[in-house]
Amino acid sequence: MSVTYVDAIREAQETLLREDPRVFLYGQDISKFGGAFKATKGLAEAFPGRVLDSPISEDAMIGMAVGAAIEGMRPIVEMQFADFSSVAFNQIVNQAATHYYRTGVPVPLTVRLPSGGTPGSGPFHSQSMEAIYAHYPGLVVVTPATVADAYHMLIDAVAMDDPVVYCEHKFLYRWLKAPRINGDGLPIGKARITRPGKHATVVAYSAMVHEAVRAAERLRDEGGWEIEVVDLRSVKPLDMDTVLASVSRTGRLLALGEAFPWGGVTAEVVARVCAEGFHLLDAPPRRLNSRDTPVPYHPKLWAAHRPTPESICIALRELLSF
């Protein structure tokens, strides 16, 4: 038996529903149907009245959840795809994110965003929205890359009094498996050294952690390079202590992300490393993101749109040869 990434998300929600009467789930097709990705399969039957189908109204879904959170509930909203959260943007960034600062009343809301590309999913079912939400004060944004993190970070997100945008990667849903849900006890806000190394640091998050590990293995086989991979786990807050400690060991930084290249998490990481650890760098830091177009539909185009082990190796070789 093994547990997939989406199983872990389902398990976490089952645990939360069982242990916390304040928790309820709200989203499109999540009740009897079990969700577009089956992340809520069986939960409506197990917890009657607490797994609720919403109309196709992303704005109202978040507005509703904020209201329920103010009243002491712990709603988890499933956006069917992260892309559709653009319709809920106003409620997320203006209602939920500003509420604590304006009124002193926190909003314990968790928004699940099925994020990132999969072959054939195209421009409107593939987006990575983490940087958009991380930009706004008042939001916590997490990007689990492992089965255990998918589970534990969802539990931790719901336990937080503040709104959390939980970015779960669709490509990892069934591909990523673990024998069981283990955990290393890292809290939200702490990055993890996924693979230790000494020649260069790759800072990644979500599905790109796995691509970075693949690239690191190739470079080890190719030339004995030891590439350190840092999994940010949460993009807000950013664990700069772990990032800077890694860069101090390696002297070289590649910031890697699947999102669009303008601005975003990789730009933030590079900017902060330059500002806070310029003296640690032996080479100009690099960024690698998706291409600057909408996410294409065709699998061949899609595979070349996002960073791949090949493109990551190219970036790393240039970084290592500086």
């Binding site: 109204s57 507005g63 209201g67 959170a69």
Partner: peptide, 8 residues
Amino acid sequence: AQVPLVGG
């Protein structure tokens, strides 16, 4: 925006 909020 307050309509769904009150609903919630």
